[in-house]
Design a protein around this nucleic acid. Structure first.
Lengths: 224, 224
DNA sequence: ACACAAGCGGATAGGGCATTCCACTTGGTT
DNA sequence: AACCAAGTGGAATGCCCTATCCGCTTGTGT
């Protein structure tokens, strides 16, 4: 309630009452599960239901949807940042690059919400934005190394990564079961395009049946 | 059944009353515009409003959303099919391949609804499904030619096209203004991966600012 | 000109969602 | 034990959507 200027940092002004703290955790946990499956457009009401708390409790703790998203994905974004930093310092720049790209895209495949968080610019969510920025900077340095190594094409641009992440999210969001397979295939193709030699191995393509069957169940468009 | 063989159009048992026909056209036109901008999840109510007809009129003419989508995109899908056939018969298979891929992806960029129609399997919409099938078959034949030419990699799979279309739709759906640019970049990278030589030229990458600014305005996730 | 089926659009039912409000409970401090 | 601010859940509000119903209007064949 009082937005008294506390400590500048975005910490919780007063410590929550123990039961409230517990509820908060339940909400975040429930949201984590729901977002993973349904993506970020999951309804607040549904999350409250899944958490077993009243809707008011959710809104009191997380006034905007972004507050909740930030709370849920802060640690995943941190892990992403750490992965980027580790890749930057990897022995072989190209191997670090390849593995980082594959890892991030696999994380997207495993978590629909995370896939969307990665391809979203939330000016409001300072934490997430900083983490993204840090990951991006580490990645940019990695690019320099990999080009010097002669394994990454000179015309690769840092922006190719977010583009790939958006593309990957698109594939994953469209195709259902075979999503991971289609995603791997896409990433394989892209890595080929990025590599100087172009000799990267390619994961197998999904069968037409898998692919097209997955395409059926679109989100809300499936009216009768 | 009815002896009225009338025009080539197979459907509509009885001819519509003239004013109804006009309304139908207005609806389809309005839907075309709305779908282009908003994608297939646009609301029926909104389309009726845009068309200046009552909701009931829309539902009477197009009982399900798919009926409307099919009516709107039938000709675009036909043009797509024709493009695929033309590519199949092109002098240079690789050039046909490249141009077809670029064309389809550019159409996606110009029309959000079409981007979604292309990456959707509507078992119910026979017309669209048949057109997709025909395009796909022509494309598959084209692949054979291009591989024989030695310009397309042997491990390219027909399923790589739908995957690319989904990926492209993902990029376009995420980024706003710079969508066309990011899309071109993606397609350029993919064509590189597809080509045996890997020497395809690459369109310029969008600037970080363009890219990230576009990422802001997500659909319904923009709460406060 | 007239009858009437075809067509029309507003009203309405029914549902989901975000968000606010409020009367009631409860943890923690004294 | 008693107090009360912090916390709670559910009801209420308001919006938008899909889908159907129904009394009125209009094109068209005779």
């Amino acid at each position: 309630m009082d937005s008294s200027s506390e400590s500048g940092m975005c910490k919780r002004a007063r410590r929550l009452r123990s039961d409230a703290e517990q509820n908060r955790d339940r909400i975040v946990e429930a949201a984590r599960k729901v977002y993973r499956r349904e993506g970020l457009s999951a309804s607040m009401a549904g999350i409250a239901r899944a958490a077993g708390v009243g809707i008011a409790t959710l809104f009191r703790r997380f006034p905007t949807r972004m507050d909740l998203i930030a709370a849920v994905f802060e640690d995943a974004m941190q892990r992403n940042r750490d992965a980027a930093v580790a890749a930057r310092d990897a022995e072989s720049a190209w191997e670090g690059f390849r593995e980082y790209v594959e890892t991030v895209c696999a994380l997207q495949a495993a978590n629909r919400g995370f896939a969307e968080v990665l391809t979203m610019n939330y000016g409001t969510a300072k934490v997430l934005e900083r983490q993204r920025q840090e990951a991006f900077e580490a990645f940019t340095q990695l690019i320099g190394r990999a080009k010097k190594e002669g394994r990454l094409r000179e015309d690769f641009s840092p922006e190719d990564l977010p583009i790939l992440l958006m593309a990957n999210a698109g594939v994953l969001g469209t195709v259902g079961d075979a999503g991971a397979m289609a995603s791997k295939r896409l990433v394989g193709q892209m890595l080929r395009a990025f590599s100087e030699s172009g000799s990267e191995p390619l994961p197998p393509a999904p069968s037409p049946k898998e692919l097209f069957r997955g395409m059926v169940r679109q989100r809300r468009t499936g009216g009768a």
